[in-house]
Design a protein around this nucleic acid. Structure first.
Lengths: 289, 289
DNA sequence: TAGGGTCCGTCTAGAGCCTGTATAGATATA
DNA sequence: TATATCTATACAGGCTCTAGACGGACCCTA
């Protein structure tokens, strides 16, 4: 821990200026000694150096400070993630994600996901962070513990990331899977996760998404002849309402049901497989034959 | 974000001239700092460089400025002629896109979009391909000329591409815009396009998406103090149903209405601005003040 | 070729913004 | 005690703002 004079000497910025940058731009937030002296860390020193670099690039003082702070933010999440990743797994990062999204802070959420995806496999991030977060989101949603605005915002950010992971999932030469949710079912993010992992395991994905009439499913199945059709639902009614139609579908192509709404009985009645694991694990275990 | 002195140094054009080109030819539309200083983006820097290139080619100042602005729209770096050809060429791509998506052929659609985005600016692709395609999709949807499966499939692919263009749109230091659709309105893709272009013009975007209760909008507006709130609706009822609430919102922050459902009367009654142009053009014309 | 119009880079003046530096009086540290 | 640091405020100089004027270069027309 350095006091202001020492920091000033090290970075070549006068103590007056350091205080000005602190009060005017929030560049530094030093700890304080018992008597009130500023105590700076190594991170603070680095931040000042980056600030000076940006000034040398021609940015205005205010702008340079802003950029230096913004960089710091992404960086700190990064190291934190890597540290925690080694020890405890990533599950805690669902919390960080939750907080960023609850505050409608898109940059923070994206930065976190960037870091996670840079350091871990897609499967790990999806299984340990995204899926737990989605569960929590769904549960808060049901409890009314979250505003519509928050839910929409979070869904949009997550959907955007998943969509970019899904890019090109119709490509390839592997077996062919058709994904959809039954009529009335609006939650398709877990299905997206499932499809992403399937594609990474060699499948070609056709995705129809939420709230799809079974009639259309049958039509597409007839046209395309998929090797597998997977439906997800969060409540049993969504499936129970269309049992006869799904039975017909199950005769046309192998059918699997997943999600909290998929019960053993329903699957049995329809003649479908039941997938009980989380979307990532389930996708890894599905057999392409 | 650069101030005028730094931009002047970088591009080798005096600050006086930069201001003259701005006021005389509309070459630049810099954001402003709280104190009124011009703040230039990288895009502005590039535009000035192109302007200089055209001057060096012998064009008059007015002409060079016109071309520099126009080619940003037309997108093609190669075209030195102000061409109508690029445009007719592009319009046909909406057809190709429509066909790929109608056949549920994700790889073909993605490949087309990859190609377009490599060759043209984001604005051009959105304005001349994506937005026309969305209009057509909406119209077929109303006519029942398209299956639910096709509509879902197409929406998902387009949404995914737009989401990746939207990545990071909450970043930056420009003015702050809140985007949403009123309750009952489910079509938010054009709003996504609008947000993407706004961000490329320096705005920070907070996106709440389709079907958002006005109560939540008011809440978020109160918390965040956006510089602008924009709502889109495809039918007037969506807006007409919540006129009193929107009037209240309009008193809290500048409000703009857009989309086919936004009428002059509604906007007037609510005390909101009306955006009548296509999403791309409208976003380019929105004033940050 | 002269005269007038237009284009466009440059300049000015007065006001306001941005930012490094200075000052004063009190308190902390060694 | 001597030095370092604290907070709060003031200030100066450079940068930028707006609005307009100026003048050289060019083009048209008579």
């Amino acid at each position: 821990m350095l006091r202001i004079g020492e920091l000033s000497r090290r970075v070549g910025v006068s103590d007056h200026v350091l205080r000005a940058w602190e009060s005017r731009y929030g560049l530094l937030k030093p700890a304080r000694s018992a008597g009130g002296f500023r105590l700076y860390s190594e991170a603070d020193e680095n931040r000042v150096r980056r600030m000076r670099a940006h000034l040398a690039d021609g940015l205005s003082t205010a702008e340079a400070a802003h950029v230096a702070v913004a960089e710091e933010r992404a960086g700190s999440i990064a190291t934190e993630v890597v540290d925690a990743g080694g020890r405890t797994g990533l599950v805690d990062y669902a919390d960080v994600l939750r907080q960023a999204l609850a505050e409608l802070d898109e940059p923070a959420a994206q930065a976190l996901l960037d870091r996670l995806l840079a350091d871990f496999t897609v499967e790990t991030v999806l299984r340990d962070v995204v899926v737990p977060y989605l569960h929590e989101l769904g549960e808060r949603w049901e409890r009314g513990a979250i505003s519509v605005a928050q839910e929409h915002f979070a869904s949009h950010v997550i959907r955007g990331r998943l969509a970019s992971l899904a890019r090109g999932w119709g490509n390839g030469r592997g077996p062919h899977v058709l994904l959809a949710c039954p009529p009335g079912e609006l939650h398709d993010l877990a299905l997206l996760v499932f499809g992403i992992v399937l594609h990474r395991n060699g499948w070609r994905v056709r995705y129809l998404g939420a709230n799809t009439p079974v009639e259309d499913l049958i039509q597409v199945t007839d046209d395309m002849g998929p090797n597998l059709v997977v439906l997800t639902a969060t409540t049993p009614e969504r499936i129970a309402d269309v049992v006869p139609e799904l039975s017909r579908l199950a005769e046309m192509a192998p059918l699997a049901l997943a999600g909290a709404g998929a019960t053993k009985d329903l699957a049995h009645n329809i003649g479908a497989r039941l997938l009980t694991e989380d979307p990532v694990t389930a996708a890894e275990h599905v057999d392409g034959s």
